[in-house]
Write a protein that binds this DNA or RNA. Structure first.
Lengths: 190, 190
DNA sequence: CTCTAATTTCAGAAATTACTGAAAGATGTA
DNA sequence: TACATCTTTCAGTAATTTCTGAAATTAGAG
């Protein structure tokens, strides 16, 4: 691996973290390299810089493509495939979350839905279903929130995230504003 | 595996998903079983119900304990260790997120910090650092938000999540309220 | 201390996943 | 068509992870 020390450290770290993130070392290193590279890279660049076999890089790139995490480009008068990551890191995060949801959450949601349709035969099954229902509701809540949030413009999203718990203050303010005289509260308001 | 069909389907699903979640089949199934069981289970219960070897269950439980995802209990006049998950599923999610952050985010954050301290030698390294800085800022933003949110009471949190993008409306309202005459906006307000 | 009932550790087997080199496939050029 | 260049596939190997049975360890009861 012939990379500037700074880049090498970054790339190696992403390789190691790969396993915790459910991707392998090759894929982790390739993505780190693409992310940090000042310009698009072709497969042989990656072979040179990371020291993996050509076939391994090919498979890694295919994996990254299936995650929609890389863009494929072509240079004029060059038949090779060049790859980059999006310039906008927020776009990367959005894709990452979207794909992880698709792979890690949606299948569970559909299994839960299916199992909740069934009629429980025993008390144990009834309890199991109650527990599944709690889980299903929680995931639905999170997915609903996510579905709203991902439509927000990045600027708004950053604004919201920066506020953190201060949002709560504003909600309380809103509550006060919309609280009817006598302490009764307009429910399901907002 | 001798479990009611509903429970079995649930347990098997979590075993399969385990690999996508960075835990293995055994751990996934054990956790699913504990989550859904109406009462605490001992290791031999799990051996009976899941069909794994005793040692495998022991290792799986150790893993779950290292994640803080199970509670250890004792019954009177019984020397065996019994395990449960928290009753409150929100507590489970909180722990899960906390632990995943600890394992999957914090190490990256500290590597990034370290690399950003260094002085870049080349233009390439300077670009790499810029890119790392973007990533670092984004992660810091998300962590700051998380740090705020995790302190919120569950009820408030649910309220907030239920609102989804409607929060935006309230922010806009707030903006209007605090906008100075002439269209100038108090910046850094929220 | 000894016996018993539980849990943990560990060496190795089994299964899975990652990786390679070589061959095949695809695509553009002459 | 043949040739050159790049990409993908694939069979086999290497490495890693998971899992087991047996042995070691721990801890309460007599």
């Amino acid at each position: 691996m012939k990379l500037p020390p700074l880049v090498q450290a970054f790339v190696l770290h992403f390789g190691e973290m790969g396993s915790r993130w459910g991707i392998n070392r090759t894929v982790g290193q390739i993505y780190a390299l693409l992310y940090i590279a000042p310009e698009p890279l072709c497969a042989d660049d990656m072979v040179d810089q990371l020291g993996f076999s050509r076939s391994n890089v090919s498979i890694g790139l295919k994996e990254l493509q299936s995650w929609n995490l890389v863009r494929l480009l072509h240079q004029p008068d060059d038949r090779r495939d060049f790859y980059t990551t999006p310039d906008d890191i927020w776009q990367i995060v959005r894709t990452l979350v979207e794909e992880r949801k698709k792979r890690e959450v949606d299948p569970t949601l559909s299994v839960l839905r299916e199992l909740l349709m069934q009629t429980p035969g025993t008390a144990e099954e009834r309890h199991a279903q109650d527990r599944m229902r709690e889980m299903h509701e929680l995931i639905e809540l999170l997915c609903g929130w996510y579905d709203d949030v991902r439509r927000m413009e990045t600027e708004r999203l950053v604004q919201l995230l920066s506020m953190g718990a201060k949002v709560q203050k504003i909600l309380e303010m809103k509550d006060r504003l919309f609280t009817l005289p006598g302490g009764k509260r307009k429910d399901k308001e907002g």
